[in-house]
Structures are given as C-alpha cells and as structure tokens.
Computed example of a mutant assay.
Amino acid sequence: MIPTSDAPNAVATDAISPESTATVDRRSVRRSAGGRLVGALRSGSLAVPIGLVGLTVLFSVLRPATFGTTANFQSLLTTQAVLVILAFGLTVLSAAGEFDLSAAAVLGMCAGVVALLTTTHGMNVWLAFAIALALAAAVGLINALFVVGFGVDSLVTTLGMATVVTGVALGTVGPTTIGGLPESVTRFGQTVFFGIGVPFYYAVALLAVLWFVLQRTATGRHIYFVGEAQTAARLVGLNVNRIRVGAFLAASVGAGLAGVVLVAQTGAASTSYGGPYLLPAYAATFLGATVNRGRFGVVGTFLAVYLLTVGTQGLQMLGSPDWVTQVFSGGVLVIAVTVAKLSRRSGSR
C-alpha cells in the first residue's frame, strides 16, 4: 500500500514525547531560576542574607564558646526585638518618602510613662499602655501637622520634635531610672517560650501583618506610590496627605510600642533609653531596602537588624574597642543609603 499523506505527520507527532517536553520545561525553569539568581547577585538583593549567614558562621568559628552557642542566639533574637519593632515603623514611613528623627525620643518617653504610671501611681497596666501609645500617636499627628499641613521639611520638624519630646518626658517622668515594675508589666516582656523571650514573637507577628499590608493590599501599593512619585499619585486621585499622615502615625505608634515592649522586657525605664536606638534603626531600614532593589520592606529590615547585631556583638566578643563598633554601625548606614539609592536606580531602568 502507498502510505497516506498523514503518515509523516504521525511520525513527527510521535517523536515529540511527553518525556522530551518535560525535559525542555525543566531546562527552561533552571535557566530562568539561574537568571533570577544572577540578577539578584548583581543587584545586591542577596547581600543582607548572605552577609548575615556569613558573619554568623565567621564569629561562631572564631568564638565558638561565646558567640556560637544556643544561649547566645536566643539572647540575640530576644534583645533585638525592640529595635526591630522601632525599625518597622520607620520602614513604613520611609516607604512613604518621609523621615522621623523623633522616633527614638518617643520610645524613651513611652517607656518612662509606663514605668511612672504603674509604679508611682499604681495604674492598671492596660491603661498605662494605652496612655503611652496615645501620647505616641499625638506626637505622630503633630509631626504630620507640620510636615503635611504646613509643608515643613520632615527632617527639620522631627529633629525639633525629638528635643521637645525629650524635654517634656524629662519634666514629667524625671531624669532617673524607674525600676521595680510590677509583675503585671514584666510578664509581657520576660515570659520565655522555647528559650526565646516573647518580644521576639511580637516582632514576628508584626512582621507578618506589615508584610501583608505592604505587599498584598491596595494600602501598601498606595504607600509605595506616594513615596516614589507623590505628584503622580495626586494626579491619579490618591489622597496623598491622608497616606502621609497615616505613615507618620505608624512610625510614632511603632516607636511607642517599642517603648512599651522595652519597659516590659527590662523591668525598668528611663526617658534616655531611646537615644541609642535611632542610628541602628535607620541603618537597618536602609540596609534592608537593598533586599528589594531599593524599595523599603519589613522583611529586609528584619534581616538587617540581625545582620547589624551579629556584626556588632561579634566584634565586641573579638575584643574590638568601642570605636570600632561605632565605625561599623555608622559605616553600614552610609553604605546602606548609597546601595539602596543605586539599587532603586537600577530597578527603575
């Protein structure tokens, strides 16, 4: 019999087997995954995770009896939760294109207020927490009034507010450290699960909430839009001023929450407690932005906090003088701002 014209087509069809198609698909996936990995390495998106792992391994090898222990890692996770919470609020505000230099002063004020109200005045712990957070929100609204309402630069406004808040806190709470807080306060910061204090779990819960809001909701998209192109956001009908006010509130309330957690964790407070937190919080905020090519995000901030902590503590355990750790922290901030800016430029091309 003479073969029909369909025979060659049948042979060709049989030659493309499901196995060969699957092989081609796997190769495409590997090529695309490899391309994404190379792109991430070139953009610096993996610098923070790689740096965190690398420094952890390095210091664990150099100081296995002190740094590389389970107890030390549990302590690191617990003690840095306050800084993480403070930095989360600043991350939201930075995403909206603003700054808040009064956040650390708000942290100290709220910690001192809770300590004063629950010890000297014997106030209910929940009411003391509510008053502290209300004061933090008030500071955020005042910042927003001057920056959003009157158009004053956010750096100038919040720098001035930092001094005002510190002065008011000193006048009402006093300059001395208040200790002896009741168990009703300290149980919120000193309870331990699996060797790790509850403040770390607060930070992780806040991380999940803020990640969802920023990455999976219209509100988050609007915050980024305002921060990246405020004029364009106005033109498309967004209520830019409301978003900016909300971002200032988030930063101040986040600082207040950090102060509440701090006083519950330490069982003592002073209005000066907040000062040392400002530089590391902003260093982590900008360093974390490199994880997403210059866009501020809470996951990057979370990783960056622990990168800075591991680096600082590791240097201290190696016997480095204090000036070395200060150079490390300040240098990381400068580098982080630079890399974040360059990453944002490359990501917009």
Rank of each mutant, 00 (worst) to 15 (best):
L90Y: 07
L93S: 10
A87M: 11
Q80D: 13
S94M: 15
T79A: 14
F88E: 01
E98K: 15
A87P: 00
V106Q: 07
G97E: 08
V84L: 13
S94H: 10
V82T: 09
L93N: 11
Q80I: 00
L83W: 00
A95Y: 07
L83F: 04
F88G: 01
A81M: 10
G97S: 08
V84G: 00
V82F: 06
A96R: 03
A81D: 06
S102Y: 10
D100M: 12
V84T: 14
L90S: 05
Q80K: 14
V84A: 12
L83Y: 03
M109W: 05
L107G: 04
L107H: 03
V106W: 07
V106E: 06
A96E: 06
G89V: 12
L86I: 12
F88H: 03
A103K: 01
A105I: 06
D100R: 12
A105N: 04
V82D: 01
D100P: 14
T79W: 10
L101V: 12
D100Y: 09
L83S: 08
L101A: 12
A103C: 10
L107S: 05
A104C: 13
L86M: 14
V106G: 03
I85Q: 04
T91D: 13
S94K: 00
V82G: 00
V92S: 06
V92W: 01
L107D: 03
G108M: 11
G108K: 02
A104D: 04
